[in-house]
Structure formats: C-alpha cells, structure tokens
Simulated scan of single mutants.
Amino acid sequence: MVGVVATVVMQSSHATLLLTLTALASGQLPYLPALAIAIGANIGTTVTAVLGALSAGVAARRLAGAHVIFNLVTAVVALALLVPLAWLVDAIAELAGLAETAWPLKLALFHTLFNLLGIVLILPWISRLAAFLERRFPEPTRLLPTQARYLDPAALNHADTAVNAMEQECRRLDRRAYHLLCSAILMPSAEVIGRPPERRSVEAPIAPDTWPLVNARYHERIKPLLTEILTFQARIDVPLTEAQQQRLEMLQSRTLRMVEALRFGEVLQRSLLRHSARMSPLREAHDDLRLAVATGLNRLADEQEGQTIAAPIDEVRRHWQEEMARRLRSHHLDPWLASSLMNDLHQASRLIAALAEPSPP
C-alpha cells in the first residue's frame, strides 16, 4: 500500500523506486518490504493510466484496461511468490558476483524479474484479453459515413496529435474523393486505383441508372466531412512549429483542390451519362477521355509527379482537337456535339490540373 499511495501521489513509479532504493541502501527499510513497495509502485501506475483514459476514446480505455489487468495479475502472483522470488534474486546476484548487501541492485533485479514474470503470464492470453476488453469497451454506435473518425477534441491539446488527426482525416476524405471521381468518369474504383486501368474497362457497356450522381454524393459524403475538417483546423490553438504549420497548409490546399476536382467531375459526369450509349457519336472520344483521366488518377494515387499525371489527358485532348477538326470538315460530326466534346475535354483537363497542381512549399 505504501508503494501504491506513493506512486499515486508523485505520479511516478520511478520516483517511488528511487526513494525505496535510497531507504534500502541507508538501512532504513528492510529488504522484503522494499520488494513489496516495488510491487505496489507498479499497481500505482494504473491509477494514472485510468485517469488519463477517462476523457479519451475507446482505444485508450481498452489500453488502460489492459495496463490495469497486466499490473494487477503480475502484482498478485509476485506477492504470492515474494519469498521464492527473493531467493531467486539472491541466487542470480550470487552468480553475477554481487555483494550480499547490494540491496539496490537486488531491488532493481527483482523489479525486472517480476515484470518479466508478468509478460510470461499474460502473453499467451493476449488474444482473449483483447477480446474481453473489446466487449467491455465496445465501439460507440457506428458513425455515419459523413462523420469524422479521427478528429477527437482531445487531440487539440497537443500540436503533434492535432496535426496527426488532420492527416488521418484528410486521407479519409481523399479516399472518398477518389471513389467519387471514379464515379464521375463512370468507372469502378477497383478498375482505376491499385492497378493501371485497361481499355476493356472503358469499353464495357454503361448503365446510366447505376451510377450515383456526383453532386448528390458530394453533399452526402464529402461536404459534411470537409466541414468537420475545416472546423477542427480552426480550433487548433496550440503552438505549432514551422514544419507543422506548413503541413497543415499543405493538407488544406490538397483537400480544397480535391473538392475543386469533384466540381469539375460533376459537370463531366452529366455529359458522359448523356452520351453513354454505344452508338453515340461521342462515345469513342469519351472512352479515350475516361481512360486518360483514370490513368491520371491511378498515377496520382501512386504519388507520381504532376506532369506525369496530366500527360494522358493532354495527349487525348490534342488528338481529339485534331480529330474534331477533320470530322467537322468531312461532315462526320455535328458542330453542336463537337462543342460538347470540346467542353468535356476542357473539364477533364481542369479536373486533372486541380489534382496535379503542386503543393505549396
């Protein structure tokens, strides 16, 4: 109990052990009680963990629970085996050539031994312990897709955690935007992200009714999350290093450019849906355009350079500008449709340009 109380009061098991070592070395404390205080100091650390987890998330409460269980189990076993463990410490000390009265070194050895004992006891039960803690501290009611996952108010207390929370949430927004941009060009994201898109993917039949409209999905999944991200960033009121400030500015710039690309994708999708029939005069050009944008998105996901990302759509745009002029001269393309295609190529170029724009230094 002395070890528990001292650790709780001083908020440090190391301070308790240092005082115990001093008292033991000066002869003011017997050997076995000193060992018991070392065990109590380990129990005292659980109070700090519990207090810290009260206002934290589910994961922190689970970790604090594991910390309490580990230390309590270790303490119970160590107290039950206190005398045998003391004998073991004496035996090891003798083998190591320590003096019989080297109490501080023996106390340090004992502290190490009973922590190793705890590891040996708990390690085989980690999976069951994790399952128990997950049942004891379940996740809250499942968040709606529009809600932030990492923007915990507790993260605002420290610059590192605030910036890390922003990075994680912005990555979630990026993933949603990638999927929605794939919908904008009427291609499954599995055919775009993770592997180079293929010609057969864009030439497949298109069922317009099966594709979610970009504008509706943007207001459902993107805008609410973007609002939470911007609100969280505005609430960061702790001192930031220059590198952290630049990182936040880069994240905001990239996120806003991603949203800008979605607005271009919204316009592009409407035209692609109108001319999605296999016999449409614009289907061939649209297939080239969709493949070029898909290739740019694929390269963007691989974090390639802006020029590499924009190259496919630039090539398609040059080709179809020449091809439109040829078909107009030969009366194989209606001028009204030609103007629609010109606008679609322009929207696709603006979409990729928004994504490929270099981040601020």
Rank of each mutant, 00 (worst) to 15 (best):
A130F: 06
A130N: 15
A131P: 06
F132W: 15
F132Y: 14
F132V: 11
F132K: 12
L133W: 04
E134T: 13
E134W: 07
E134V: 09
E134K: 15
R135C: 10
R135D: 12
R136Q: 12
F137P: 02
F137C: 10
P138M: 08
E139K: 15
P140W: 05
T141M: 13
T141N: 14
T141Y: 08
T141S: 15
L143R: 15
L143C: 07
P145T: 04
T146M: 09
Q147M: 10
Q147H: 12
A148T: 05
A148S: 13
R149Q: 13
R149D: 12
R149C: 08
D152E: 14
D152V: 07
D152P: 04
D152W: 10
D152C: 07
P153D: 05
P153F: 02
P153H: 07
A154L: 12
A154K: 13
A155T: 12
A155P: 04
L156E: 03
N157Y: 08
N157P: 03
H158M: 09
A159M: 05
T161H: 07
T161N: 11
T161R: 12
V163L: 07
N164G: 13
A165L: 07
A165E: 02
M166L: 15
M166D: 02
C170E: 05
R171G: 02
R171W: 04
R171L: 06
R172Q: 13
R172L: 13
D174Q: 14
R176C: 06
R176V: 12
A177Q: 10
Y178S: 13
Y178E: 15
H179A: 15
L180R: 02
C182G: 03
A184F: 00
I185L: 04
I185D: 01
I185E: 02
M187D: 01
M187W: 03
P188C: 01
P188A: 08
S189N: 06
S189C: 08
S189E: 11
A190F: 06
E191S: 14
E191I: 06
E191A: 14
V192E: 01
I193R: 07
G194I: 05
G194A: 08
P196R: 10
P197V: 04
P197G: 03
E198N: 05
S201R: 08
V202T: 05
E203H: 09
A204I: 04
P205F: 00
P205N: 00
I206M: 01
I206Q: 01
A207K: 11
A207S: 06
A207P: 02
P208G: 02
P208L: 02
T210P: 01
T210H: 01
T210Y: 03
L213S: 12
L213C: 11
V214P: 01
A216V: 14
Y218E: 02
Y218A: 11
H219C: 06
H219S: 09
K223C: 06
